[in-house]
Nucleic acid binder design. Sequence first.
DNA 1: AACATGATCAACT
DNA 2: GTTGATCATGTTT
Length: 203
Amino acid sequence: MINIDINKMLNHDFYNRNTEIVAKDLIGKILVKKIDNKILAARIVETEAYLPENDPASHSFIGKTKRNQAMFEKAGTLYVYTIYGVHRCINFVTEEEYRGAAVLIRAAEPIMGIEEMKRYREKKEKKLLCKGPANLAKSFNFSIYEDRKSLFTDELFVFEDADLNYPILRSSRIGISKGIELKLRFFLKDSEFISANNKGEPV
DNA sequence: AACATGATCAACT
DNA sequence: GTTGATCATGTTT
């Protein structure tokens, strides 16, 4: 059983690093969100890095805009965007000096608040609750109004459960047409909670 | 016109 | 079970 421990919260130093490293290191960490005094928690099993430079798939590639401004803010800021008009996706801002980089959270294993997640997500199977970036955001009831929130509050944070040695693989990112040569998707090998194929190279 | 997606359904193996 | 086509939906370029 997981003990939610705010004292193990990932801090600014964690996010204030190379985006690729942060994306890899986020695998196995626990995302916690408190809603109406209910705690939702899930273990992150799949992420993607979106780089500050030379990455045509990144929202920041065209420079700072109203939509992507969160990516240019402090490391440890939440970036929420609407995709295909209907879905929301969540990212954690990385890198120093406000460079325009973030990690997309693509999938997680539900741990606490599973009944609440089922209600928000309108699905029963635990395995499907946080499978895919928009499904994860839906299970956690993230909205566009939470864009630019801090990841350092007791309402919303990420922490390290234990220093386990997870087998992590890397592959091309999902659902993009540019930058497919970059292997910037990271996932927990053989997890039943990841959103797509289990093929990748060791990190 | 494209888009960092997901649901659904048909047609396989 | 799995894979591929199709579409809903609205914001951004």
